[in-house]
Design a protein around this nucleic acid. Structure first.
Lengths: 160, 160
DNA sequence: GCAGCATTATCAAGCTCCCTGACGAAAAAG
DNA sequence: CTTTTTCGTCAGGGAGCTTGATAATGCTGC
């Protein structure tokens, strides 16, 4: 008797999700570069994804939202400041804090980024059907909520 | 008049997928540790996920499958060797190559890992409904295929 | 049979991203 | 006023992956 081959492997779900996620991020950055913001990298999402568009945010709040440390987000903010996407102004209410606010350029990038996300989802919906795409989004939302990872922050930094 | 608030943000799909993926990986590693393999880390997937269970694989093939460089995978293989999950034997057909083969312990880990993945999917199906879960998987599969990322490898390492 | 090129695995160095730890300044609590 | 907490930042480190270089071996054409 042969050693009873154990293959074939089932498709691991995490691998599929990684593929989809990477594809989305690739598309986003390609198009956002074309749209006039070639310097934006994936790592900037911890700021763009959580900043208050109207009033700005404090570093601590950005870090909590993204589920990263203040140091990590602080470095990203410093870079975005250098690139002209955000400014840091002292908080008039609190001498320790600084308010991180989007510049016009930064706001433009965020708005375009959101539009591109919607665009990508629309394209995918055309390819696999709107109902399936809607199910995909709903399932992802519910599973993420189930596991206590509503947005992308779990609570503590990188809580593995 | 106020500056016309632009919020609220839509839920970004990549963030949701990241959450789901992280949750799955967390669960997997927690349970695989309980199942007798506490040393296994997420990074080991580039070997366990692509190795030929029956005949073993060459480093080059593992790297190609995982979409990483041979150096990166080589380091993981060295660690798994140290831990007793794989062995490296010279390829009788090719003096340059070595065949990386799972030990009994390694095979046990892979099989248990697969079972746990199935288990997690089953649990999720109970929580959100089998039809929705099936749709989720189907959509993920088709989207990953669409974007040329069938498994998790895109071709070249980290092709961003 | 041998020269030239491709391929295998590995060594070395570096980069990116994120963490822990420690700190001065300011606010909040007592 | 003193103590404790919070805010942002500086410093250092580690994990994970990259590019570059190298020795040994295989393959192909002559």
């Amino acid at each position: 008797m042969s050693p009873e081959p154990i293959s074939p492997p089932p498709r691991p779900l995490p691998a599929l999700l990684t593929g989809v996620k990477l594809a989305a991020i690739e598309k986003l950055h390609g198009r956002i570069a074309e749209a006039g913001h070639p310097e934006i990298r994936a790592g900037h999402g911890c700021v763009f994804g959580f900043i208050d568009l109207d009033n700005g945010s404090r570093l601590t709040d950005l870090a909590a939202g993204a589920g990263l440390t203040k140091q990590a987000v602080g470095e990203v903010v410093a870079e975005l400041d250098r690139l002209g996407y955000v400014t840091r102004v002292p908080d008039p209410q609190d001498g320790r804090a600084k308010i991180i606010k989007l510049t016009d350029r930064g706001l433009d990038a965020v708005i375009k980024g959101r539009r591109i996300f919607e665009e990508i989802e629309r394209e995918w919906a055309e390819q696999i059907g709107p109902e399936l795409m809607a199910s995909f989004r709903e399932a992802a939302t519910r599973l993420a909520a189930l596991e206590g990872r509503a947005t992308e922050a779990g609570g503590r930094p990188r809580a593995a």
